[in-house]
Every structure is written in structure tokens, then in C-alpha cells.
């Protein structure tokens, strides 16, 4: 198969996503940011409540996986909760009922999300734009109803008391700090993998499709195959985040598959900056922190999230990192 030839015509950039200038391999700046991030994350659990830090990391991976599809693939899925929550249920079930070790439970959940993403993706890519968003939302709602009614999901109660177990059967994850470093390894690894995908020849073709689909087709790319692959990859990594989260909270519940979860990940990505590397991580951090501090205000959290959505769409479409990248004149 022919490898991507860059379609870097700045005039043809899609209105939805600001184009990101490409550099081969990982730039020095990105290396430095990842290094600082890693060091900060190693210190973090000794400064803040580890569960909170783990929640942020899980959502950062979730948002980064979503951003692969929206920011780099140009596809707006409004149903990513299905993969996040679906994987969370399967991992919780595997750990609790089948007695899987945590790494196997997470892998099982992730595999389930991959299958689900492939199935839904192969139908959803038959429509484009707004219809694509509606189709993914509708299928996610179907997953929600299944989770509500199926036996193994425990209905309104969800799956509670999921054992954290022993990593590889030897290292106990019952301790929050031990679990923290497991979650750190999983989510950081996932985010690096996403970085690799975005900067691979495959990622270049994706951007070409996003910028100008008819041209990508005329260059001989099987556009639908690329879309299905990126959809499945995004669903898989969203599933990895969801499966990990079920171990952290020892719980898989309807919240994880609800449409508002799909909306939240869109909000995180929009706020942080669509099509940027670090935007979703920042967006996830901001939103999770906000929810944490505003939890006592009940439904006002929904109102505030709605306001952020509206302001973000009307005046702040580049997102936090997008604006920063423009100031620094460097892709972030």
C-alpha cells in the first residue's frame, strides 16, 4: 500500500479544526513537555488525593482518544460513552465474576470496546457530518438501554465492589499509591500511543481525509477503511480509559454509558483544543477539577458545563491549548 503523501494545502483546511503543522518524529518541545508531565505525575499522588489524580488521568486518556477521532479524523462522535462505559462494565465483570487479574480485566474490557467500536463504526461511517453524530449518539443510547436491562450490568445499581486484585497475580493494587502507578503507566502509555498514531503515515492520511476528502479519494485512498480504523482505535483507547476507571472506583455504573458522558468528553476536547496533542489532557483536567469542586451545587454543574459549551463554540473555538499554540507559534 502506498504511504501517505502529505496533503498540506493550507487553503483547504476544514472549518472545524485548525490545521496542525507537522514535524517528523517527536519534536524537542513535545519531548520536554511529556518529560515534565511524567515527572509531575510521579509527584502528584503525594500532593493531592490519589483517586482524584487517577480520575483526571483516566479522563485525559478518554478525551485524547476522542480527540484522535474528532481532531485528527474530523469525525464528531456523540456516543463515545458507549465504549468508555461498555469497557468499564466488561472489565468490572471480568474482575469481579470471572476473577481476572487487573491487567487481564482491563484488557478484556478494552477488547470489548474495540469490538463494539468496530461494529458501530462500520455502520456509522456510512453517513457523514451531522448524521454521523446522530447515528453514533443513537447507538450509544442503545448500549445504554442494554446496560440498563441486561442481567450482568446490575441495572440501576451497576457493578459495585469490583476487586482491584493483584497485578500479574503478585502486586496488590489495594493500596491507592500502587494503583496510581498502574493507572499512570496505562494512561501515559495510551497517550503516547495516540501521539504515535497521529504522527504516523496513517495519521497523515487521516489529516488528508479531514482536510479534503474528495481529494484523498482521488489520490487512491480507501477513505472508508481509514475512517473505520480510526473509529475503532479511538473506541479501543476510550475503552482502555473506561476499563481502568472501573478499577479505580471499583464501580461500573450507568453514568459511564449515559449520553451526558459522551457530551462531557466532547466538552473536554473542545475546551482544551481540538486537534492539539495536549488540549484534551488540559480540558479533562479542568472539567474534572471543576466537577470536583462544584459537586455540592448539584444541577448547576450541568448549567455551567452548558455555558462553557456555548462560550467555547461562540468565541473560543481553538481551545486553551489552541490559543497557547497560536501565541507560541508552535504546534502543541
Amino acid at each position: 500500500m502506498a504511504i501517505a503523501e502529505k496533503s498540506n494545502n493550507p487553503e483547504s483546511s476544514s472549518a472545524l479544526v485548525e490545521p496542525v503543522t507537522q514535524t517528523a518524529g517527536m519534536s524537542k518541545l513535545h519531548k520536554a513537555i511529556f518529560a515534565v508531565l511524567l515527572i509531575a505525575l510521579i509527584i502528584l499522588p503525594f500532593l493531592v488525593y490519589p483517586i482524584f489524580a487517577m480520575k483526571v488521568m483516566c479522563f485525559a486518556l478518554f478525551a485524547a482518544a476522542f480527540n484522535l477521532l474528532l481532531g485528527f479524523g474530523g469525525l464528531l462522535s456523540f456516543g463515545h460513552a458507549a465504549y468508555f462505559g461498555g469497557a468499564s462494565y466488561v472489565a468490572a465483570h471480568a474482575a469481579k465474576v470471572w476473577g481476572f487479574t487487573p491487567e487481564l480485566a482491563v484488557l478484556t474490557g478494552t477488547a470489548a470496546a474495540a469490538l463494539l467500536g468496530f461494529a458501530i463504526g462500520s455502520l456509522a461511517i456510512r453517513r457523514q457530518g451531522i448524521y454521523f453524530a446522530m447515528v453514533t449518539l443513537a447507538f450509544a443510547q442503545m448500549v445504554y438501554f442494554v446496560a440498563l436491562q441486561a442481567e450482568f450490568t446490575g441495572g440501576e445499581d451497576g457493578i459495585q465492589g469490583v476487586p482491584r486484585g493483584d497485578l500479574f497475580g503478585v502486586i496488590s493494587l489495594a493500596d491507592n499509591i500502587a494503583l496510581y502507578f498502574f493507572v499512570l503507566a496505562v494512561t501515559f502509555g495510551g497517550i503516547l500511543l495516540l501521539y504515535r498514531i497521529v504522527h504516523s503515515p496513517f495519521g497523515q492520511v487521516l489529516k488528508a481525509i479531514r482536510e479534503n476528502e474528495p481529494r484523498a479519494i482521488s489520490l487512491g485512498y480507501d477513505v472508508n477503511r481509514y475512517k473505520l480504523i480510526v473509529f475503532t482505535l479511538s473506541a479501543t483507547l476510550a475503552g482502555l480509559a473506561g476499563a481502568t476507571k472501573s478499577l479505580v472506583f471499583q464501580l461500573a455504573s450507568l453514568t459511564d454509558v449515559h449520553w451526558s458522558m459522551s457530551g462531557e468528553v466532547v466538552l473536554m476536547t473542545l475546551l482544551g483544543g481540538m486537534g492539539t496533542i495536549f488540549g484534551p489532557l488540559v480540558g479533562a483536567g479542568v472539567i474534572v477539577t471543576m466537577q470536583n469542586y462544584l459537586a455540592t451545587f448539584g444541577a448547576w454543574v450541568t448549567v455551567i458545563q452548558g455555558v462553557i459549551f456555548v462560550i467555547g463554540v461562540l468565541m473560543f473555538r481553538e481551545g486553551i491549548i489552541g490559543v497557547l499554540a497560536r501565541w507560541l507559534k508552535k504546534p502543541l
Binding site: L16, G129, I130, A133, V266, V301, G306, G312, V313
Partner: peptide, 18 residues
């Protein structure tokens, strides 16, 4: 892009409902 209309009205839905 028309998808921004979807995102905006989603935000409005959250506000009204909240």
C-alpha cells in the same frame, strides 16, 4: 462547519435542562 451548531445547541440543552 455545521457541527458547531450541534455543539452549541447541545450546550443550550444542558443549560435549559439544568
Amino acid at each position: 462547519d455545521h457541527l458547531y451548531g450541534l455543539l452549541l445547541t447541545f450546550g443550550l440543552a444542558l443549560i435549559i435542562q439544568g
